[in-house]
Amino acid sequence: MQYKLVINGKTLKGETTTKAVDAETAEKAFKQYANDNGVDGVWTYDDATKTFTVTE
């Protein structure tokens, strides 16, 4: 399945996608991506759209 990440950071904004077997695996990949880019915020997930959002 394909999952999307929407980033609403202080210095980084945008979107990225990943393919993963489940939401938990996608979340780990997205959190690593956010961490690598210095984004630390509040996470939400919408199962209907398979979209994670992180807001600083």
Rank of each mutant, 00 (worst) to 15 (best):
T16N: 06
K50V: 04
T55N: 06
A34E: 01
D36R: 08
G38V: 04
K19H: 13
T49V: 06
K31N: 04
A26D: 00
A23W: 14
E15L: 10
Q32I: 11
T51P: 00
A34K: 01
G38W: 05
T18D: 03
D46E: 07
T17I: 10
K28R: 12
L12P: 04
T25D: 09
G41S: 02
Q32S: 08
T18P: 02
A29E: 11
G38D: 07
K50P: 00
N37T: 07
T17Y: 15
G9T: 15
N8E: 09
M1K: 11
L5P: 01
T55W: 10
F30E: 00
T11I: 11
K31H: 09
K19Y: 15
A23E: 07
E24P: 11
T51V: 06
A20P: 02
G38M: 07
V6C: 06
N37C: 11
M1G: 11
T17P: 02
T55Y: 09
K28C: 06
V42Q: 09
A34P: 00
D22L: 04
E56N: 05
V42H: 10
V54M: 04
T16M: 15
V54Y: 02
D46G: 02
A20H: 05
F30C: 02
A23G: 04
A48C: 08
Y3P: 01
V21Y: 13
K10D: 06
I7V: 09
K50H: 13
N37I: 15
T17H: 11
G9S: 11
K50R: 14
T18H: 08
D47N: 09
E56S: 06
N8R: 11
A23M: 13
A23Y: 13
V21G: 10
E15V: 13
Q32W: 06
T18S: 05
M1H: 14
L12Y: 13
N35E: 12
D40H: 14
D22F: 04
L5N: 01
T51L: 04
Y33N: 02
N37L: 15
D47L: 07
K13F: 11
V54L: 10
Q32V: 10
T44N: 08
T51N: 02
Q32F: 05
K19T: 15
Q2V: 15
F52V: 01
M1E: 14
E24R: 12
Y3R: 00
D47G: 08
G38P: 02
M1T: 14
T44D: 09
T17F: 15
T51F: 02
Y33K: 03
T18L: 15
A48D: 11
L12C: 13
V39G: 02
G38S: 06
M1L: 12
Q32L: 10
A34L: 10
A20Y: 06
F30V: 02
Y45I: 02
M1N: 14
A26E: 00
K31P: 00
D36F: 09
Y45S: 01
V39A: 04
L12T: 09
N35G: 08
D40Q: 13
T25Q: 13
N35P: 01
K50N: 08
E15T: 13
W43M: 04
K31M: 09
D36E: 11
F52Y: 06
T53N: 05
A48S: 12
V42L: 10
T55R: 05
L5F: 05
D46T: 05
K50T: 04
K28Q: 10
A34G: 03
K31W: 07
V21H: 12
N8L: 13
K13T: 10
